[in-house]
Simulated assay, not measured.
Amino acid sequence: MTARNHTDLVVEQSQSRVATSALTASWRRSMLKHGLDPGDRRQPDRASGAELSQRREAMEEFLRLAGPQLDRLYSLVGLSGCNVLLTDADGLVLDQRVAEADARQFRDWGLWQGANWSEAVQGTNGIGTCLVEGRHLIIHRDEHFSTRNIGMSCIDAPIWGPDGRLIAALDVSSARADQTVHYNRLIGAQVAQTARAIESVFFRASFPDARIVVTGDEAQEAAALLAVDKDDIAIGATRAARRAFGLEREGAIRPRPAADLLGREDDLSGFDRAERAAVTRALTRAGGNISAAARALGVGRATLYRRMARLGLNRK
């Protein structure tokens, strides 16, 4: 598709009252809400060196934890000419992985650290639209709003912080002319998995003294984790877990017994609950070793087995 034809199509679809797809909704936002011109060929805005350093410093721990995951993703897609990017919640690129041979092309396109890829600035694109819609998506070539971006494919997934708020976007962009929709989907699965891994490791690091409970299917798109304290009280939850258990959408959650959230029968009270918490801690510290847990509690193995049975802690 030529640049002229693409511009005409975007304008027509953006002004149409009939077009209702998610893509045309994004085109419409780009043109009508943000006042952008699909034919504008200017590069994305770039943050100054000082602003980029400030943004990176504000997310220093997150970037440190995300780094190894970016490395793994790049090891899978880098040789095929892909650029791995990590942005903040505003669409500003904070970190990336790219081959030296491909660097000039991506720098010319503005897919570089410090570039602003928000939808409000660049129109429909993988990073910006992912952040607006809060979902995993692929923007392939002429699905972009701007004609200057129709030569690239962008595959993105959102990353949610431990407070349930959107914190970043993970992007893999390709400059290959032969990039296919099928190949984009394969990359998309890796992007989603990596975003989930980054979200999980950052959540775990945010609750260093808590026990982390995986509450959902490991194969699902988002990480459903609960942070549980030494008294078996849930004190933190990822966005997926918040949605699953009807918890506060954002911010700190109201502490609740983990047993209540997980649907476990818990008719114990008083000293029984305290004893179960103590036994659970001892077993956890001992890695499930009954003999070691019994020694830590100062009781015999048989006694510990009886108490576990009474407290509903039978283990295979």
Rank of each mutant, 00 (worst) to 15 (best):
M1Y: 09
A3L: 03
H6M: 05
H6D: 00
D8E: 15
V10M: 06
V10C: 00
V10N: 11
E12N: 14
S14Q: 12
V18H: 14
A22R: 07
A22G: 12
A22Q: 10
L23E: 09
A25R: 13
S26G: 11
R29C: 01
M31R: 13
M31N: 09
L36M: 02
R42M: 09
G49N: 13
A50Q: 08
A58I: 01
A58K: 12
M59Y: 11
E61I: 06
E61D: 15
L63M: 05
L65I: 09
L65K: 12
P68A: 02
L70A: 11
R72V: 05
S75Q: 08
L76D: 07
S80F: 07
L85P: 07
D88V: 02
A89I: 11
D90R: 04
L94H: 06
D95Q: 06
R97S: 04
A99W: 05
A101E: 04
R104W: 12
G110W: 00
G114L: 01
N116V: 06
N116L: 08
V121K: 06
V121D: 08
V121L: 09
Q122I: 00
T124D: 02
N125H: 09
G126K: 03
I127E: 01
C130T: 14
G134P: 04
D142I: 13
E143H: 07
H144T: 02
F145M: 03
S146P: 04
S146L: 11
N149T: 08
I150W: 00
M152L: 12
S153T: 02
C154Q: 00
C154W: 00
W160H: 11
P162V: 06
P162N: 06
G164K: 06
L166F: 08
D171F: 03
R176F: 02
A177N: 15
D178Q: 03
D178F: 14
T180F: 02
H182K: 03
Y183R: 14
L186N: 07
G188E: 02
G188F: 11
V191E: 04
A192T: 15
A192Q: 15
Q193E: 14
F202H: 08
F202V: 14
A205E: 15
A205Q: 10
S206V: 09
S206E: 02
D209H: 07
A210V: 04
V213Q: 07
V214T: 04
Q220F: 02
Q220L: 12
L225N: 02
A227E: 07
I233R: 11
A234K: 02
A234H: 07
G236D: 06
A237F: 03
T238D: 12
F245Y: 12
L247D: 03
R249N: 13
I253K: 08
I253D: 00
R254K: 09
P257R: 05
L261A: 13
L261F: 02
G270R: 03
G270D: 11
D272C: 05
R273W: 04
E275F: 08
E275H: 12
A277C: 07
V279I: 14
A282G: 15
G288R: 00
I290T: 10
S291N: 06
S291R: 04
S291K: 00
A292E: 06
R295T: 09
L297E: 08
G300C: 08
A302K: 06
A302L: 08
A302R: 14
A302F: 13
L304M: 07
L304S: 04
Y305F: 13
R307Q: 14
L311Q: 10
L313I: 00
N314A: 09
